[in-house]
Design a protein around this nucleic acid. Structure first.
Lengths: 253, 253
DNA sequence: CACCGAGGTCGACATTGTCGAACGCCGGTC
DNA sequence: GACCGGCGTTCGACAATGTCGACCTCGGTG
């Protein structure tokens, strides 16, 4: 691959920083984070503001993400083949299992939620589409890591801890991923949130490459038996759904 | 405002084209639409692919939007003040009125849905957050146009027709917007979809500037009386909600 | 099998973005 | 209330940078 266009890469880096940072950021903060002169960063921000990707807060003068990105994001959902092919199967899995279903794909070493079906009861739930989950602490992400060696090694040694049970070392995660490959499914039991567990399996595309993952998540005592192991019936349902989506994407078993 | 950075503007134009076009687009299609040599467009696409804003379909070689945009879009929702301040009031309006609630803001002359609360029953409904609605054919959009002369004039004379009742001329829309300003609320009765009506009112920010709109939409026979006029009670509820959000944003009445 | 059109590459050119210094503004502080 | 420091912003000279069109490779087609 030849050279990339510098200014566009920098603009993308600015947007990524604004997405990560909790709120608004100033010119000098961004310049510091990127190691660029503030004049340069200001020019990028001016342009991004012009196209609606960034908005400036009047008064504080700081910058935040702009509305145009929201439309781009949902437009992505419209054309994303993984999602559109999987929607029906996700609905079916949700009603059969009685749990919330999510579909994930790998983005920058984390699991991006591209689809989300609520648990089929009337409880309060929020849409999680577009969220980035820590790959090492959820079933959805473990599946993705298990079949993407590059992403798994790029995570580094020390992983962020969310609960007592989070796998926080490469040494601990490696065997877990091997087990995922062996069994064909992944689980997370209170590794990200206390009281919550998940089960997921891989979705494969044309050439057998893993392009995403589908899984359920919910209260530990519904998903797992007394020993803390995911119920076999649910695991089977998840695997069936993953296979069905894979077949729909053109993968031959 | 000084000069903007050319390559970033072009990259944004590419993304906008990809978002508009229903599916994937090729290098030459994009180059043709932008009036640029294809070598240049290819360089932009290569860079956008590198940062994850664009994905290339293996096999066809065509390009589509990338996953990174989804996360940026939802990150925008997290920091958007209009949305975060309005969420509680939107929920309240939905349960009081019994209808679906949407909050909109102006983007490129159309109404961008930044929040959406389902109608409080168990019917099948899809999330509309991120959608761009035609401003001239929905209550949400009419409110925004009524208080933004620049956007209203930029629409041009001939507007797209969706139903028999769509206002398709500037001559027809002008008085309608004047009426919105006068009454303080807007309505659309089967102007975008047959059988569906909507009512909306303006949300004002700090300085009294209109920053968005909030409204309900649903079946005509629920929202309107026999004469096809929105029920006064519902109009009042929408106006109350709009006022409440405005107050929360710092607007003094 | 030649042809067309697709996506992709390459290198010379000068346009284009970069950079650092200087400006104006605001809010603190002494 | 004069000062200072920090912010976002502007400006212009320089050269690094992206642009552009010709060229390449590959599939599908008549």
């Amino acid at each position: 691959m030849s050279k990339s266009i510098q200014s566009i890469e920098r603009a993308a880096a600015v947007l990524r920083l604004l997405a990560r940072g909790p709120g608004r950021l100033g010119v000098v903060e961004l310049a510091g984070a990127l190691g660029l002169p503030k004049g340069t960063v200001h020019g990028i921000l001016r342009t991004l503001t012009g196209v609606g990707f960034v908005e400036q807060d009047r008064g504080s003068g700081k910058y935040q993400l702009g509305a145009a990105l929201l439309h781009l994001g949902t437009s992505f959902l419209d054309v994303n083949e993984l999602r559109s092919r999987a929607i029906n199967w996700a609905d079916a899995l949700a009603s059969r299992s009685g749990e919330a279903v999510r579909i994930g794909t790998l983005l920058e070493g984390r699991a991006l939620v591209v689809h989300h079906v609520f648990r089929p009861d009337d409880s309060l739930q929020t849409v999680e589409i577009g969220q980035l989950l820590p790959a090492h602490a959820c079933a959805l992400g473990k599946v993705l890591l298990a079949y993407d060696r590059a992403a798994a090694t790029a995570l580094g040694r020390d992983l962020e801890r969310y609960t007592q049970r989070t796998l926080t070392t490469a040494a601990g995660l490696g065997p877990a991923l091997a087990q995922v490959r062996e069994r064909g499914w992944a689980a997370d039991v209170e590794e990200m949130t206390v009281g919550v567990a998940g089960v997921a399996a891989a979705i494969r595309g044309h050439g057998g490459l893993v392009v995403g993952s589908i899984g359920i998540s919910g209260a530990v005592d519904r998903l797992c038996d007394a020993g803390g192991t995911p119920r076999a019936g649910l695991v089977g349902q998840v695997q069936d759904a993953a296979r069905a989506v894979s077949r729909e994407l053109g993968h031959r078993w």
